[in-house]
């Protein structure tokens, strides 16, 4: 087992005898989106080592399929609230590696002038903040506005497993259920909150917490975008057209450290996590397509890095 949590709130238990289901062939666009995120994040870690990046970063290596699945079910009118581990959320929506990297490097063309950095992005109806749980009530407020002004649109909030430790999450879920707001809560349960395994920070599980408010809940351990999308699509339609909240828990794996070099997991745990990596499994199942697109996205991100590093620093002054 990856951690000492009960099976319902732990990361997927990797039983070598059974193994995860095989991965279906994706469209080039979906795979490109996932590998864009993968290479973007890998390059960020490299840029840190090289001293080009300032501050911190939280990579979503291993979790790329979650935002790619979710984003494909969202429209322009939907609001997305992202969090500290939000690069994948942003790239899945906008494929704007240039703007995001410029933001992280404080270079011209940055999404938010280099002011917000990794954890504070705002573009159209996409917003991220760096305080756990803070977005839940804000998203509920936006969902209330959408319910009145744009029926059929929803607010989507990404959380981690650790986010469920914040009290304001429950205040917001209560209000969202009471007021029948179109709020989609996507929990990426990667089994570890910074360094604390889920079993040490969460009593019970996400399912029970959603049930306490009478909120619809679904849990996915699969990493196959095709199957996930098919399963999620009707549930998201219910959020839109019945105007009611939904909590979706993706049991997933964080391949990288919490931020830069702070991974405290044992070698055995890391081996298990790496073995679950969708990319390895996809490469084995569809080698030709994977190698082609992997090489494309690798080149693309390398070009973006070189191009953005050559840009001038951003200009901003406090009002």
């Amino acid at each position: 087992m990856i951690n000492n949590a009960g099976p319902s709130n732990s990361a997927a238990v990797l039983d070598e005898g059974v193994g995860p289901p095989s991965l279906s062939r994706l469209s080039d666009a979906d795979l490109s989106s996932m590998l864009l995120i993968r290479h973007f994040e890998k390059n960020l870690l490299k840029l840190f080592e090289q001293g080009f990046l300032h501050g911190t970063t939280h990579t979503c290596l291993g979790q790329e399929y979650v935002p790619v699945t979710v984003t494909s079910l969202l429209g322009d009118a939907d609001h997305v609230f992202s969090n500290h581990r939000g690069h994948g959320h942003y790239l899945a929506r906008y494929a704007d590696a240039e703007g995001l990297l410029a933001e992280l490097l404080g270079r011209a063309g940055a999404v938010c002038g280099g002011v917000g950095g990794s954890q504070h992005l705002l573009r159209e109806r996409f917003l991220s903040t760096g305080v756990q749980g803070q977005s839940l009530p804000v998203a509920a407020g936006v969902a209330w506005n959408l319910k009145r002004s744009t029926p059929g649109a929803l607010a989507c909030v990404y959380t981690g497993d650790g986010t469920w430790g914040e009290g304001v999450v429950y205040e917001a879920l209560n209000i969202t259920a009471l007021w029948e707001l179109p709020l989609l809560v996507v929990t990426e349960n990667n089994g570890i909150a910074q360094s604390t395994p889920t079993g040490q920070h969460m009593a019970g599980d996400v399912r029970g917490r959603a049930a306490a408010f009478g909120i619809a809940y679904e849990r996915f351990t699969d990493t196959d975008v095709t199957r996930l999308r098919a399963a999620l699509q009707p549930l998201v339609e219910q959020v839109r057209h019945m105007s009611r909240p939904l909590v979706v828990e993706f049991v997933t794996h964080r391949l990288g450290p919490h931020s830069k070099g702070d991974d405290s997991r044992s070698p055995a745990e890391l081996r298990a996590v790496r073995a679950a990596d969708w990319a390895l499994r996809y490469a084995a199942a569809h080698p030709e397509q994977f190698e082609r697109i992997d090489a494309e996205q690798s080149r693309r991100v390398e070009q973006v890095v070189a191009e953005v590093l050559a840009r001038p620093l951003t200009d901003w002054s406090p009002r």
């Binding site: 009530p137 804000v138 509920a140 209330w144 506005n145 304001v168």
Partner: peptide, 12 residues
């Protein structure tokens, strides 16, 4: 939450 909801309303 109620102040957060108000913030969300204002944001929208």
């Amino acid at each position: 939450a109620l102040v957060g909801v108000a913030g969300g309303l204002a944001l929208a």
